[in-house]
Nucleic acid binder design. Structure first.
Lengths: 110, 110
DNA sequence: TGCTTAATGAAGCGTCAACTTACATTACGG
DNA sequence: CCGTAATGTAAGTTGACGCTTCATTAAGCA
């Protein structure tokens, strides 16, 4: 999940994701949208996205076609949903903290 | 919005956010949850989170109490919702690309 | 086979950010 | 006042990463 978050933080990678969200595109096609950087740079971004599971690749001859994997975005969405609401982690941490405090006299609490 | 994304990508900051999501805590209290790093490191994280608008701070004597600002998380949520579905950016880019291609002979297309 | 096209791999560079140590600030309490 | 507690700031180090240039792989085709 961390890989997904790191992947989508880079603005260029978010742009790439948008590009192939609804249709496959070749590496060169994608690179053509970003004249401000070189092709290898795009290639590296594609690798990061693919490693994070956000992109699927299939070869067709000498071309490589990339497309977004909506399931992974759904994963991220679910994770964030849980992040907003989930108190479990918080409560676990609180439990041990409170326990430690209760066993100390008042003047040792901070 | 980029600031929010960058802020929550750092795992330690996500943990901090969870800690103060439902109750205020002092800087020292928060730092006590992360024995693996020093207090100044936490202080710096708090600043990043506060600058991103994700944390509110109020002073109480010499202490500083931090708490999450749920509105900003809601902003992020809305942004991501839009990100999944929004085709506007994509369509804009497609339009200019397709136009450029159609005006070129076949052998100049990539 | 050898040339061309599509794309990645590898090495190196510059920048950024998370961290540490040391110092400064601010407020309370005797 | 002065000391101490709570916290932030400054400066410096280090590792990660996005980028470029140059080299390499792989497929299609004469």
């Amino acid at each position: 999940m961390d890989a997904i978050l790191r992947a989508i933080v880079e603005p260029r990678r978010r742009d790439i994701l948008q590009l192939v969200q609804h249709q496959e595109k070749t590496s060169g096609d994608i690179a053509a949208h970003f004249p401000e950087v070189t092709r290898p740079a795009i290639s590296q971004h594609l690798k990061v996205l693919e490693d994070a599971g956000l992109l699927a690749m299939r070869k067709e001859g000498t071309k490589r076609l990339y497309q977004a994997v909506p399931e992974r975005l759904a994963d991220l969405k679910r994770y964030l949903e849980a992040f907003w609401d989930d108190r479990l982690q918080l409560l676990a941490r609180e439990a041990e903290t409170e326990e430690r405090r209760s066993s100390l006299p008042d003047d040792q609490r901070n």
